[in-house]
Write a protein that binds this DNA or RNA. Structure first.
Lengths: 231, 231
DNA sequence: GGGCCAGCGGGAGCAGTGCTCACGATTGTC
DNA sequence: GACAATCGTGAGCACTGCTCCCGCTGGCCC
């Protein structure tokens, strides 16, 4: 047993435990206050030992970023799975609602992911997959609507899909033969606006403006559904 | 002369100079890398001397935040002043475009303001005024449209103004006698979405998705104008 | 005009950070 | 059982924000 063995296993386990402790610190104190030394202290090891598992603080943060993306994506996926398949608007609201609720419950982790890129940034390759999960949910939702004939692929301003990366529309299932399509672009706009709404709330920009944040959010995401062209 | 004197004047000047040096550091290296000691070094003074002018690093950052808000607001105001008064859409686009261009030109300063709240946050009172300047431009634009009869105060979902702070609609000139008004809420949604669009671009979330950022932005803000109900 | 004290700059120092490195100890593999 | 890769340790470097005390000095009041 353990051809590639027990050593690797305890390493993997320790790696996970360090990330877990770090995630707790992040959740309670925010990314800026996350200290490798503090994590090491809590684990009862020398600070230098942590570097055997994470080559730098930034790598630890990257791990936490991926975890956060995945957590958000999973929350949204579970919510949309529980919504009635045929009711596009219900599914739309389920995704938006779940995403916002995760953010409200985990503000610091949300800020780590959708706030300012922390260090000298440069989003690591590992993050680009998980980052798109919520967006993908929204676009498959839209493509379902197109397939069912309830969503019009056209819409103003026409042709704005041309501003997107060439293969992105296909990758999210919103390709169109028409050069005038704006479907994918509208989906992306709604996706971005969704996170704009959440970010403004989490970061406190709407503090003196919105009173009932939940109600406002629901109404706003409903407007976004209009924008996309959901029935 | 100088009843409240020369002393106060050199103090004000030095304060300004420190802020200026700090702003340059921020612009080139980002908020995380802004070091009081580095600013002090560049000014040729001991690090402790800086504390005579700014009681803490956070206070320095707060000053820079206010400056950034004002710079954004001014850019937008100048742009809208140069647009044809009667053409609501042109004015709308002018505001959006100027805001985005400022952000592209000053990414770190933008991130300081619209990214994650840096330390233990708690937005200082001094920031709430300047923070609303762009939003105010958008809402006065809308209210102009209402006055001219080209913008319908109603719109889906009806009554969502109720989610806002009670007096906010009046403060931005979008008060309504109808309990079913959603005009202010739609304006706030568009305002938030505008900054969502800019943030996603600046923070790199659309890197592999949008190719022509300027074109995409223009199309998206046009859609937001639709959402508000601009003619 | 002269004294006086608030205001100022300087330097040392504290507690903390990320990260490196040489050193033993341990442990899985041949 | 020997060997070597792996691991944890502690000291140390350079840096940070911030505090405190010192000595000087320039503007105000008598």
């Amino acid at each position: 047993m353990s051809a590639a063995g027990t050593r690797a296993r305890v390493r993997a386990e320790l790696t996970k435990e360090i990330a877990e402790v770090a995630r707790r610190h992040l959740a309670s104190d925010g990314a800026a206050a996350l200290s490798l030394r503090a994590v090491a202290r809590e684990m009862g090891m020398a600070s230098s030992a942590v570097y055997r598992y994470f080559p730098s603080r930034d790598d630890l943060l990257t791990t936490l970023i991926v975890e956060a993306y995945d957590a958000i994506g999973e929350a949204a996926e579970q919510a949309v799975a529980a919504a009635p398949k045929g009711d596009l608007r219900a599914r739309w609201q389920a995704i938006c609602r779940a995403t916002r609720e995760w953010a409200v419950a985990h503000p610091h982790e949300y800020a780590l992911v959708y706030g300012s890129p922390v260090p000298g940034y440069a989003a690591p390759q590992a993050t680009i997959g998980p980052a798109g999960r919520v967006g993908l949910l929204l676009t498959t939702l839209i493509s379902d609507g197109v397939a069912a004939g309830t969503v019009d692929p056209l819409g103003s301003p026409t042709g704005s899909d041309a501003a997107l990366t060439p293969d992105i529309a296909e990758r999210v299932g919103l390709a169109s033969t028409s050069a005038e399509s704006s479907l994918a672009a509208r989906g992306v706009t709604a996706w971005i606006s969704l996170f704009g709404l959440i970010s403004f709330e989490i970061f406190g920009h709407t503090n003196n403006i919105v009173e009932d944040h939940e109600r406002f959010f629901t109404d706003a995401t409903d407007r976004l559904a209009d924008l996309v062209g959901l029935p």
